[in-house]
Amino acid sequence: MTVPAQKAPEAGAPASLRPARPRWRETLGLLVRNPTAAVAGLVLLAIVLVAVFDEALAPSGPNEIAVEDRLRPPSWAHPFGTDDLGRDILSRVVLGAAVSLRVGFLAVGIALVVGSVIGLLAGFYGRWVDDVLMRVMDVLFAFPAVLLAIAVLAVRGPGPGNTALAIGIVYVPIFARVTRASVLGVREEVYVRASRSVGASDWRLLTRHVLPNAAPPIIVQTSISLAFAVLAEAALSFLGLGTQPPDPSWGLMLAEGRGFIDLAWWLAFFPGMAIFVTVLCFNLLGDGLRDVLDPRQRTLMAGGGR
């Protein structure tokens, strides 16, 4: 924590009142300097591009069945092998990326927005606002996650959109709690009181001071949750509530490949690797972002540390 206070970049310090470069460009620049986060970001970008252009990139249709090519190990014709119906696994992994990522982003997006707003209000206003909101969250949290998701899907019917909604609802209390805990600490900070003393409104305090300073744990939680959402989609698909076969999703493929694990490892291995790499990259990028968004770390990094 304690950093040498005056280790600012002395040469060419910007003399204007605004930072010399826009903040987001500075942030991006520092992120690129952090090799782990940069690599993770590039890989994620590649995965997203694959998901966006899935139709064009897939070597063959995901549901093209070739019975004579069943359970072929990886080869030049089928780099990831084929499954028990002779479908090309590479194509299915490529198309599954779109499904898995869409569900993941959507679910975490819902949980992030709803959960952090609830946590922010509960933590900042305290008293009965806190009591009411957090008790509701407790009730939501008390349900086993899968059971709650099943209930949502039972009401709304299966499908990617509803899967995302179900997972999102399950994750709302997690974000609410993480945000609230962080806000409870920040709202007592003197700079919040100082800002109030010059007449700042609650809205301003929340958006300019409390939220930015409470953000780091939320960022980390987001990256972790993206990972878990992809896995949750897999679990729900496995139970037959998420993606419906024959549509491919990584989780569903993993579940289907499980039965062939000692016979044809590639059925489960490649979708599993896709999940693993994606999840890992989300986490690494999240950690990198958290560091880069902290001005104290920022100065250290820009000052040539590491």
């Binding site: 900070e189 003197v190 700079y191 009181r193 100082a194 109030r196 003393s197 010059v198 300073n213 104290r296």
Partner: peptide, 19 residues
Amino acid sequence: RRRAGMVFQDPFASLDPRR
């Protein structure tokens, strides 16, 4: 709040580190 201001004790805590 405009007409009456306050200077706080701890200058390490009274400035938002992110601004």
